[in-house]
Design a protein around this nucleic acid. Structure first.
Lengths: 189, 189
DNA sequence: CTCATTTGCCTAAAGGTATTAGGCAAATGC
DNA sequence: GCATTTGCCTAATACCTTTAGGCAAATGAG
């Protein structure tokens, strides 16, 4: 019996590729076994179960996304940073729909805390350094931006904006303008 | 063999209840059959398949949500309308997490068009009547609001804001203030 | 190099969900 | 009261998940 060289790492990576190809929901222990031309039970030495596999894919995606964000944010400030950050999310979702869907997986708090979720929050906050926002408004703004990015990308991916004018690219640019304006003129209490 | 009186309608309704109790992902033809104390195959006379069942639950949720929005919007304008609309989304998601998850199901275009999705778009647009926004900015604003509401509620439901200060209720109120301010001072091109 | 140990993938088996085909009995209508 | 429709059932197939236990390949000590 030839050994294929399965590892937890390789399974997560292959699972991520599979997700991008067929959708995160279709990522299954069986499908992954087929991809490695290996019997299903063999995977259970490397991942605890199906949920564990999905969680690992999610964490991988979050890590990748955080890396890209960090790279995009380096040396930018203000609206430049805002747009760069937003574009990373959107582009990642387009390039890797399955991974992006995985990144949306609801993780239990400890798992999430151990992963790259914290980096995401820190980076969103870093964007706001270019604007004049004191706490607690800074946190409100972080949440507003996070919500918008996530919501926009989800809706666009889900076809929520399809078949309508104006073009979503224009909306994307104009809404980023609008958010920039909002952050510069954040309303006082 | 006593007849239970299954109908497509009752199945969708029971499926929605089940979704709220155990989560939309756990809604399965088998689970629904158990709930009616009926054999699994019996359901296939009323729904085409598992996907069909889920779609019907999604459409039911979208309809309910649209009804609530319409009721909330009646007689309100400007920020009042904005807040009322936003609160309907948030409250619905809290009251009916399973149904809300169902409403997020990706529908094929024809199904979506036949459902209440159109009403949602029209109502979001109605909110903007209280603000001075011409096309195409109105559409951009509709998309921004839709993205934010959806994103915020998803993140909050998913625990994205948990264990952090300030309180999410405060953020909710302040971000609505901010969006109101943004709509009143929409940046010119 | 040889032998013992570890480790990786396998077979086997049990349980759950989805879906289809065909049957019997209850409801419906003439 | 009988024929037809309709509703739920049994049976069967197929796929996914997960656990238990086995054999052989890799690894490493002497």
């Amino acid at each position: 019996m030839a050994r294929v060289g399965l590892t937890t790492e390789r399974l997560a990576r292959a699972g991520a590729e599979l997700a991008d190809e067929v959708g995160f929901d279709e990522v299954t222990v069986s499908a992954l076994a087929r991809r490695f031309d290996v019997k299903v039970a063999s995977l259970y030495s490397h991942v605890k179960n199906s949920q564990d596999l999905k969680t690992r894919i999610a964490l991988l995606a979050l890590e990748e996304l955080a890396d890209r964000c960090a790279a995009a944010l380096a040396g930018r400030a203000g609206k430049d940073a805002l747009a760069a950050f937003a574009n990373v999310y959107r582009d990642y979702a387009r390039e890797h729909p399955g991974r992006y869907a995985a990144a949306q997986l609801r993780l239990d708090p400890e798992t999430a805390a151990a992963g790259a979720g914290v980096r995401h929050a820190q980076m969103t906050r870093a964007i706001l350094r270019g604007y004049d926002l004191a706490e607690p408004d800074q946190t409100h703004a972080v949440r507003l931006l996070g919500s918008f990015f996530h919501g926009y990308v989800s809706l666009e991916m889900g076809g929520g904006f399809s078949h309508s004018t104006p073009d979503t690219q224009v909306t994307w640019e104009r809404t980023l303008d609008a958010l920039d304006a909002l952050l510069r003129n954040w309303p006082a209490v």
